[in-house]
Write a protein that binds this DNA or RNA. Structure first.
Ligand SMILES: [Mn+2]
Ligand SMILES: [Mn+2]
Ligand SMILES: [Zn+2]
Ligand SMILES: [Zn+2]
Lengths: 143, 143
DNA sequence: AATACTATTGCAAGTAGTTACAATAGTATT
DNA sequence: AATACTATTGTAACTACTTGCAATAGTATT
C-alpha cells in the first residue's frame, strides 16, 4: 500500500519531465514510511542512513521541490520548524495555544465550510493541511 | 490613533507584570508605525535605528514574546520567513500558489464559518491571521 | 553502447534564527 | 534616594536553512 503510493509519486515525477534521482527516491521513501509529521532534520537523518553521502542542502531542496510539485504536504504546527508529510490523508490541524495539544481534523468534516469559503473568495483553496490555533475545550475552562 | 494603541499595549504589559524596557517599546513602535507585514530582519533594522545597540537576539525574543502575549500577529505567507504585524485589523490571508497574489480577507466575512468551525471542533479558535493557499480566479483559467 | 544535453547534486560559504550564561537594569520596597 | 530582587538583555557560540557555482549523473538520441 505504501509502496504503491510511492511508485505513483515517482512515476508522476517522470511524467512531468523531472529526473528520478536516488536522492529524490530516498526522501520520498522516508516520507512514505513515516507516520505523521517529520522535520527536515529528521528526514535528513533517515535519508542519509539509506543513502550515505546525501547532503543537507539536497534534502532541503528536495523537500521544497516535492512540496511545489504537491507530492508532499508542509505545515507550521507551532514548533517553529516546518514539518512534512505525504498527502495520504486530507486533513488539517488544531493546536491548543495553551497546552499544545494537537489534533488532526479530517478534511471531509470541513468540506462544506471550505466550499462556502471558496465560493465567497473566488479562490480554489487547495492547501490542505492548514493549522488553526485556539484553546482546546480543557483549557477554555481554566480561563 | 496609532499612538493610542501603542500606549494601550505598553500599559497591558505592565498590567500583566512584565517590565517595560526600551527594547520592547521600540519593537512595539516599529510594528505600530508599519503598514502591513514586516519580517524580523526589517523590524530589527528599523528598531536598531531608533535604539542603537539593540541586538538581534533581543528582537527575535521580543517578537516571540509579543506574539505569545497576543500583542502581535505572526503569519507564514509563503515567503519562507515569518511576518509580523499588529492585531489592529482582524483578517486572514489568501495566497495564490501560482502567481503569488496575496489578499487580505476581513475576518467578519468569515465570522459565520469560523463559528461553525469552532462548534464542530470544540476549540475556541483565536488564531486570527490564518493563511490559505490556492489558485486565484485568474490562475484557475489558465489550467 | 557511446554521446550530448542539461537538470540536479555536493561543496563551501553565507544568512537566519536560537540558546546558555553572566551582566545589566526595571520595579517594588525601604 | 538607596537597596534588593530578578526579569531581561548582550555576548558568543551554536543550529537551521539557503545560495552560487562547478562537478556529476540522469535521460534522450544516435
Ligand atoms: Mn498533518
Ligand atoms: Mn496580515
Ligand atoms: Zn489546551
Ligand atoms: Zn494567481
Amino acid at each position: 500500500m505504501t509502496a504503491n503510493l510511492l511508485e505513483t509519486c515517482m512515476k508522476e515525477l517522470r511524467l512531468r519531465g523531472f529526473r528520478l534521482t536516488p536522492q529524490r527516491m530516498v526522501v520520498l521513501r522516508v516520507l512514505h514510511e513515516a507516520h505523521g509529521h517529520l522535520t527536515p532534520i529528521e528526514i535528513c537523518e533517515r535519508a542519509q542512513e539509506m543513502l550515505p553521502g546525501l547532503t543537507e542542502p539536497t534534502v532541503y531542496r528536495t523537500l521544497n521541490f516535492l512540496h511545489e510539485q504537491r507530492l508532499a504536504l508542509a505545515a507550521h504546527v507551532g514548533s517553529g520548524q516546518l514539518v512534512y508529510e505525504t498527502g495520504e490523508r486530507d486533513h488539517h490541524h488544531l493546536v491548543c495555544r495553551k497546552c499544545g495539544a494537537t489534533h488532526e481534523i479530517p478534511h471531509d468534516l470541513l468540506e462544506a465550510l471550505f466550499s462556502q469559503f471558496q465560493h465567497k473568495t473566488g479562490y480554489q483553496i487547495d492547501g490542505m493541511h492548514v493549522t488553526f490555533f485556539g484553546l482546546c475545550p480543557g483549557c477554555q475552562d481554566h480561563q
